[in-house]
Simulated scan of single mutants.
Amino acid sequence: MADADAAAIRASRAEWAAQHLVTYLESGGAQGHILNLHDVGGRTCTTHCLIRYTGRKSGQRYIKPLIYGNFGGEIVIVASKGGADSHPEWYLNVVSGDTLDVQIATQAFEASWREPEGDERHQVWEYMCHLYPPYISYQQSTSRRIPLVMLNLQTPTEIFTIES
């Protein structure tokens, strides 16, 4: 999919995504963790986490809501960018550092990350496509291999706020 097409899809959902983030943050994670994404091809109970990372150029802190799965005790997030031909900025920022923070519902942790390889990657990809079927069409629409990021939760930290 051309980046312009993916950008149009993201723009049409931008208000929804911004409100989702505010709801998640203002509720301390009590709301926004599980959403019904059936209207966009997802499941009725789709789990979302928040990641907090530092911009590799700006040094600013950012918070991004993402669909996640739990595979073998690790949290999995997908750098799909709706099937765009370029990686999402959050992914480029995450891979430029050693750790990031993740909030799942009402609990937050510092986490290390890694990218699965080989057969493990195939298994994780299949699992994530089961959780959110649109990932299949996202991958078909781009020549880039959509990255998977596996998070190993470590030290508990304070839940995210709008100011963090």
Rank of each mutant, 00 (worst) to 15 (best):
Y91A: 06
L92M: 10
N93P: 06
N93L: 05
N93T: 05
V94K: 09
S96M: 04
S96D: 15
G97M: 06
G97P: 00
G97A: 15
G97W: 07
D98G: 07
D98S: 14
T99L: 09
T99E: 14
T99P: 07
T99H: 11
T99Q: 12
L100P: 00
L100C: 08
D101I: 00
D101A: 01
D101G: 00
V102T: 03
V102E: 05
V102Q: 02
I104G: 02
Q107R: 15
A108M: 03
F109M: 03
F109A: 06
F109P: 02
E110C: 15
E110T: 15
A111H: 08
A111M: 12
S112W: 10
S112T: 15
W113V: 01
R114G: 08
E115S: 15
E115Q: 14
E117F: 13
E117A: 10
G118R: 05
D119R: 08
D119V: 12
D119A: 10
E120C: 04
E120M: 12
R121Y: 05
R121G: 04
H122D: 14
H122M: 02
Q123C: 07
Q123V: 05
V124W: 12
V124F: 14
V124C: 05
V124A: 11
W125K: 10
W125T: 09
E126L: 15
Y127D: 13
M128G: 03
M128S: 04
M128L: 10
C129Y: 02
C129I: 09
H130M: 08
H130E: 15
L131K: 14
Y132H: 13
Y132L: 11
Y132F: 15
P133W: 00
P134D: 05
Y135Q: 01
S137P: 00
S137T: 05
Y138Q: 02
Y138M: 10
Q139K: 08
Q140R: 13
Q140P: 01
T142Y: 09
T142D: 07
R144G: 11
R144H: 10
R144L: 12
R145D: 14
R145Y: 02
I146K: 11
I146N: 03
I146Q: 13
I146D: 09
P147L: 10
P147R: 12
L148Y: 06
L148K: 02
V149Q: 04
M150L: 14
M150Y: 01
M150G: 01
L151F: 10
N152R: 11
N152H: 13
N152I: 05
N152L: 09
